[in-house]
């Protein structure tokens, strides 16, 4: 069994890596979703400029993913 003084740094390291993964992976997920929406949005705005406002809001939709990732990362760190 490992000595307690080595367990704590290991636990901290795992927490840090987990936090990084939580925010990093959700960030990538959001980026993929937004890139697809973005491409469609440009087409949409060209066809229907009056829908600009709605489209900008839809563009911001996938950000919830990274925000939840941030919340998880934050709770892990806290």
């Amino acid at each position: 069994m490992a000595a307690p003084e080595t367990v704590q740094p290991m636990a901290d390291a795992i927490k840090n890596i987990s936090s990084a993964l939580a925010i990093g992976l959700t960030g990538i997920g959001t980026a993929i979703a937004q890139s697809k929406i973005g491409a469609a949005a440009v087409g949409g705005i060209v066809e229907k400029p009056e829908a600009f406002g709605l489209i900008v809001v839809i563009m911001a939709l996938p950000e919830l993913i990274v925000i939840l990732g941030f919340a998880v990362a934050f709770l892990l760190k806290a």
């Binding site: 950000e63 919830l64 925000i67 939840l68 941030f70 919340a71």
Partner: peptide, 12 residues
């Protein structure tokens, strides 16, 4: 539930 957590963005 999603909408509720969406307000986390204010802090983020």
């Amino acid at each position: 539930v999603g909408h509720f957590f969406s307000y986390l963005r204010i802090m983020a």
